[in-house]
């Protein structure tokens, strides 16, 4: 079990990092998803896999009968899953919005906030003055 989990976590990290290097924004999001799942596996593996009995103590007993599962990492992973669900939902909408407004999903083409023309002659930077414009309708 440990070996399988370790291998899958490693595979997920490798895939995630590979996708994070892609210029396409949607692939970046997929990369983050894979990385998130790897993190959850690492959390679970941190609690070891040694039992399958629910960690509940029967009435009248003082110990759990049999080998209890470690409940804490499960709770941690659940928290992390919920958080990453929210964040990824936001990230996907953000990518969709920037595709609609900027007309590209290519991270290398997105230079509005960091124009190349920092040292060039005045008046050549493509963007309007940052921050102040009211923004497109929502």
């Amino acid at each position: 079990m440990d070996t399988i989990v370790a291998l899958s976590a490693g595979l997920l990290v490798a895939g995630g990092v590979y996708l994070l290097h892609a210029p396409n924004l949607m692939r970046l999001i997929f990369g983050l998803m894979l990385l998130g799942n790897a993190a959850n596996l690492v959390l679970l593996a941190g609690g070891r896999f040694f039992g399958a009995v629910p960690p509940l103590i029967a009435e009248g007993e003082t110990l759990v009968a049999g080998d209890p599962a470690n409940a804490l990492p499960q709770a941690l992973a659940l928290t992390a899953i919920v958080i990453s669900f929210g964040i990824l939902a936001f990230a996907i909408i953000l990518v969709l919005r920037s595709y609609q407004f900027l007309g590209t999903a290519d991270a290398d083409a997105m230079r509005l906030a960091e124009p190349d023309t920092a040292w060039e002659s005045p008046g050549e930077s493509p963007g309007e003055s940052p921050g102040e414009s009211p923004g497109e309708s929502r």
Binding site: L20, A38, A39, I87, L94, G131
Partner: peptide, 22 residues
């Protein structure tokens, strides 16, 4: 604000920071 610069900046900020928290 929803301006184009902010969306552009937002994407980079979100991706790097989410990767960091992971």
């Amino acid at each position: 604000g929803g301006t184009r610069e902010q969306l552009d900046a937002g994407v980079k900020y979100v991706v790097v920071n989410v990767a960091a928290t992971l």
